[in-house]
Amino acid sequence: MNHSSLYLYRTFARFMPRLKIPRKVNNPPKVKGFKPYGVISEGEKLDPVILNYEEYEALKMCDYDMYNHHQASIMMNVSRPTYTRIYASARMKIAKAFVEGRKIEIEGGKVYFDSNWFYCKSCGCHFNNPEINTSVSACPLCGSSEIEQHFEDTTTSQENINDDMCVCPKCGYTKKHMRGVPCRNERCPSCNTPLVRQNP
């Protein structure tokens, strides 16, 4: 999202649909799509079904890695209902392709790819690991093995620009809202009041 679109969103927020939160994709698909073979009714060319990256990822998380919707939604950085909608859409598209004998093309969607980030203690640099299958043992810059995994990616903080907060209505305690966990289920640590959502 660039500044002009953010400006537009803040100004015309009442008239615009909510912005989609970028979904995190850990394992992009190995293939670009699937083709049916032995088609019985030849002649007419059918349009392919476009399966988005996020839908592929949702299907993989739930049916291949056997996570439940709640765990999978946290890994994709969306809320649980959003995850379920993405998953339902993926199943509908695949069923349509199977029944009608259409091609499946995997492309598009509002996603970002995430690789692991590391921090080197000796030279102070951050680096990522683009090869998911190999593990990192040393810093690529100074060769030091004093590295640690870096979870909170400071460089993507711009992306969380419209992140909401959970606020205690009584004492003003605030914490960052975590997607997938409703604010009302969380309690203020000092006065035990259910928290409420606040937009920045």
Partner: peptide
């Protein structure tokens, strides 16, 4: 933000200093 996913899909390692 636009560069990161591009480099990720090209498997180019980013080092931030």
């Amino acid at each position: 933000l636009k560069v990161k996913p591009m480099l990720d899909s090209l498997k180019i390692q980013m080092i931030i200093l």
